[in-house]
Design a protein around this nucleic acid. Structure first.
Length: 514
RNA sequence: GGCAGGGUAGCUCAGGUGGUUAGAGCACGGCACUCAUAAUGCCGGGGUCGUGGGUUCGAGUCCCACCCCUGCUACCA
């Protein structure tokens, strides 16, 4: 079980501020990273920024600043957001890092050396919009004009670019998908890619002649021009260059165990990226997980559509942990889901404050009141036995065997929480406390409850690291909850812990700030 | 257009190979309890299972048609 675990997120495109969709992915990946750490793995968690390309250059120009200054600012905003959300990344890569630029160029050269036939020059022609600085497709043209710039004339333009012979890798990719069914999950995304491959892979152009804000393509054109590298051919290698590539240390980390991405970029990660690595004769990542999207008010939160949902506002409502919980509970990690403030309030009140928060509150209060704040000893009970079943479901949802189903893991934990509340009512420790003859029974009840709460702290640590630590502290657990290991979970014993009921874990009053 | 997935209580969803009164959570109503953040527990109301046909002793579950939604359909990222 224990071993190295290298997990990555998509690197975010630096043409705007972080929104809830970016946050959702980082939180989901963070849960996986934290889960693996609790499983005992040596985790390396990579995230970062994709900073080249036309749109970045344009956005910078609109603000009248240099592209580098622009992306520096954006990268700072993203990092601040990840800090606010408690994202435990180990490394933050930026495609404008000199090391990345060198690494990406080295990879391209390696592809050229290993598979010289995979790069070739070809002339591309089409209608070019100077306003967009892009070739336009038919559906982007109305009345002979670009729909975005109807005052400008489209120009019939020819451009000679480098192409990557993706077509050569169709059979390789089909074999990859056949031999490694779990290479790409969930199933729906895999089926889409299989359908795509069945239609046949076409070569892709990987350089742009007008692209100045880019990594210079390391192979000069026949005309002597050095073109800019297509952003994806620059961005995808970040997972590899982050390991130090081409320095030989890269072998210590590569291949990645898991790429967590959004479903919209599945093709790039499940087809283009493996083909690039194969062309370079490098190992492929072990798995790609394509999560769904968070919809808001019935609308998709795309990067272009102006999202009205402010992440900072969502964090301020109940704190970062509550937002982390809500997103992962409400939006299945293998499909789309919705965000609504009403639902957020309902979930916070019902799940966090009433069910979990109150269970901790009432249980700890009784240990204080009846046993002087010292957890009494007690044998394993039916509560422990029943929880073991849900614990198995929790792991089955997160260990990768079925993919990464965060929502199912949380459902399993909340089945335990409900059981805890039922147990309290059934045992009625306040009655046991009134009868001295039931002292042993009361000990058993309280000990059982404290063990369960201790387990919750560990199981929820990946999802709500701050609240898990707070709960652990109230229970008087030793050391840091993040230092606990799943393997020891059912043997966890809270006897003699000194509890201290502090502030409510999940107060009903909305925090003014986080 | 093609391919794929889906339309089940107010909301979010479960419902292998067809079989007694269609389930869960949240929301809503009643009761109980008092340890607790007026929290919790128990009970309950609520659905012609997208539409119309068909197969069958019997279909949410199989077949056909239709309507609607979502994704993919390759070089913005």
């Amino acid at each position: 079980m224990a071993g190295r675990f290298y997990v990555t997120t998509a690197i975010d495109y630096a043409n705007g501020d972080p929104h809830i969709g970016h946050a959702y992915e980082k939180i989901g990946a963070d849960v996986i990273a934290r889960y693996r750490r609790l499983a005992g793995d040596d985790v390396h968690f990579l995230t970062g920024m994709d900073e080249h390309g036309q749109k970045v250059a344009q956005a910078a120009a609109e603000r009248g600043i240099a592209p580098q200054a622009f992306v520096d600012d954006i990268a700072g905003r993203f990092q601040a957001m990840w800090k606010a959300l408690d994202i435990s990344y180990d490394q933050f890569i930026r495609t404008t890092d000199p090391a990345h630029k060198a690494g990406a160029r080295a990879l391209i050269k390696r592809i050229h050396d290993s598979s010289p036939d995979d790069f070739y020059e070809r002339t591309y022609e089409g209608w070019y919009c100077v306003g967009c600085e892009l070739f336009k497709r038919e559906n982007e043209i109305a009345d002979g004009k670009c729909v975005l710039h109807p005052t400008r004339e489209l120009q019939w333009t020819e451009e000679r670019n480098w192409f990557f012979r993706l077509s050569r890798y169709g059979d390789f990719l089909k074999r990859l998908f056949a031999e490694r069914p779990d290479f790409l999950q969930p199933e729906a995304r895999r089926n889409e890619m299989l359908g795509l491959l069945a239609e046949g892979a076409e070569d892709i152009s990987i350089t742009r002649s007008r692209l100045a804000w880019a990594i210079p393509f390391p192979i000069a054109s026949s005309g002597g021009e050095t073109q800019g590298t297509w952003v994806w051919f620059d961005a995808l290698p970040n997972y590899l260059t982050a390991t130090g590539y081409p320095d030989r240390s890269w072998r210590e980390r590569w291949p990645a165990d898991l790429h967590v991405i959004g479903k919209d970029i599945t093709r790039l990660h499940a087809i283009v990226w493996p083909a690039m690595l194969q062309a370079a004769e490098l190992p492929l990542p072990r798995r790609v997980w394509a999560h769904g999207f968070v919809n808001f008010a019935g609308e998709r939160l795309s990067k272009s559509a102006g999202a009205k949902l402010d992440v900072a506002e969502a964090i301020a409502r109940y704190g970062a942990d509550a937002l982390r919980y809500f997103l992962l509970r409400e939006v299945p990690f293998d499909a789309d889901g919705n965000f609504s403030w009403e639902r957020f309030d309902e979930r916070y009140t019902a799940d966090l404050a009433n069910a979990l928060g109150n269970l901790a509150s009432r249980s700890i209060a009784m240990v204080e009141r009846y046993r002087g704040a010292i957890v009494p000893p007690g044998p394993r009970t039916a509560l422990d036995d029943a929880d073991a079943v849900d614990l198995a479901a929790y792991h089955a949802a997160l260990d990768g065997s079925r993919g990464y189903l965060h929502h199912e893991a949380l459902q399993a934990v909340w089945r335990m929480v409900a059981r805890g509340n039922e147990y309290v009512d059934h045992q009625a420790p306040w009655k046991q406390a009134r009868d001295p003859a039931l002292a042993a029974a009361l000990d058993e009840t309280l000990a059982s409850l404290m063990r369960q709460l201790a387990r919750f702290a560990v199981l929820l640590q990946p999802f709500m690291p701050g609240k898990a630590a707070a709960l652990w502290r109230q229970l008087g657990g030793p050391g840091d909850v993040a230092a606990q290991r799943f393997a020891d979970l059912m043997a966890l014993d809270a006897t003699a812990w000194h509890v201290a009921k502090g502030d409510s874990l999940f107060p009903k009053e909305r925090a003014a700030t986080s």
